[in-house]
């Protein structure tokens, strides 16, 4: 494989970055339109049906809803450029701060689930290409169709019922036990508990954090496992049908080496795309999983603020989610360009 030309790569990434920023401005505009134009009166919505007109007027003034839309839009964009998403109505703290303090918990959960999905999905996909006849097809098809059909909010409850309430193997909620901070407090470095405890050698806390994350991660991984398995298999089959694989086999290269060294490497591109896009799915998956397991991350915060019509928080989280999605897409494209020079030409 030819070494990627760094200038080419840089150009590609710069172009994609510029495009992503444009998309984000557009996304911010849609969010603004959704929140200021569609609902008849956001202030009334927030205060509920029994609000007095004076209260509504007060809220309208406070959020600038009484000013012309164009002015509101300008103000909103200026705020965004400064990284200001306003203050949460429920907690009175800046939304950016609320999101920032919760993102590590959600990322940890998503990474753990992704690790499971890749750790199970990729080997399963590769092995399935070696199964005789239609057996591989059947295994993969059943796994993936079940995976994509399971409602996460139901699977989460079933796992909780079985492994927490009946078997008692895992704790039922939260990231760590409430008493842990007295016994073995976690030193906060990255905010990812598993990583931090491992780095500081705090094994008591590591075990506790691990026990807490297993069930939420498995619940979140059910959907992506199926997708990753299916994609790996499809990509592998495509690569395996190519001439150079036949040549390698004809030369007597060991099958294990053909699969691992020659085929999997080229099948990794499409699989990477699925993995990246799965991250986006996972973000919405955390809404259910975090509610069920009382995981103190973005998901439970989102659901709470959406239910409370916490206006700035809804705006902030929607924007944040879209930005995350755009970023993941960007990363996927960049890493594909890195792996496969053909991508850059297009």
């Amino acid at each position: 494989m030819a070494e990627p030309d760094p200038v080419d790569l840089l150009k590609f990434i710069t172009r994609r970055l510029a495009l992503s920023i444009l998309v984000l401005v557009g996304v911010a505009t849609i969010v603004f339109a959704l929140t200021r134009i569609i609902p008849s009166d956001p202030a009334a919505l927030y205060l509920g049906p029994r609000a007095r007109p004076a209260e509504i007027a007060d809220i309208q003034k406070r959020f600038g809803f009484d000013r012309p839309l164009v002015e509101q839009y300008g103000q909103y964009l200026r705020g965004l450029a400064r990284g200001d998403l306003g203050n949460s109505l429920a907690t009175k703290r800046p939304v950016t701060q609320e999101l920032g303090s919760r993102i590590a918990a959600t990322l940890e959960l998503m990474f753990a689930a992704m690790l499971l999905a890749v750790g199970i999905g990729v080997p399963l996909g590769v092995v399935s290409t070696r199964l005789r006849g239609s057996l591989g097809e059947a295994v993969v098809r059943v796994t993936s169709v079940i995976g994509v059909s399971l409602p996460a909010f139901w699977l989460g409850l079933l796992l909780q019922l079985l492994f927490v309430h009946v078997l008692g193997w895992f704790p039922s909620a939260g990231r760590v036990d409430a008493g842990l901070r007295f016994v073995a407090p976690i030193t906060n470095i990255t905010g990812l508990n598993l990583l931090d405890t491992l780095v500081t050698g705090n094994l008591t806390a590591f075990r506790d954090a691990l026990a807490h994350i297993v069930l939420p991660a498995v619940t979140l991984a059910a959907y992506p496992i199926g997708l990753v398995t299916r994609m790996t298999r499809a990509a592998m089959l495509e690569v395996l049908s190519q001439d150079y694989i036949r040549t390698a086999r004809a030369y007597g290269v060991a099958e294990r080496r053909v699969l691992g060294r020659f085929a999997l490497r080229n099948a990794i591109g499409p699989t990477l795309t699925v993995i990246g896009l799965t991250m986006a799915f996972m973000l919405t998956g955390t809404f259910y999983v975090e509610v069920i397991y009382a995981w103190p991350g973005l998901g439970s915060f989102t659901v709470r603020s959406f239910l409370n019509v916490d206006y700035p928080a809804i705006l902030g989280m929607t924007l944040f989610g879209a930005a995350g999605y755009v970023l993941v897409n960007l990363l996927v494209d960049a890493s594909q360009a890195l792996l496969d020079p053909r991508v850059r030409v297009a």
Partner: peptide
């Protein structure tokens, strides 16, 4: 198509949730 792209830039469930929350569940 550019407008399409913008809508596709949201995780679809998140966009739907925001709309519902603002319209009343």
């Amino acid at each position: 198509m550019r407008v399409c792209d913008l809508f596709l830039a949201f995780p679809s469930l998140l966009l739907a949730m925001a709309i519902v929350a603002l319209q009343g569940p």
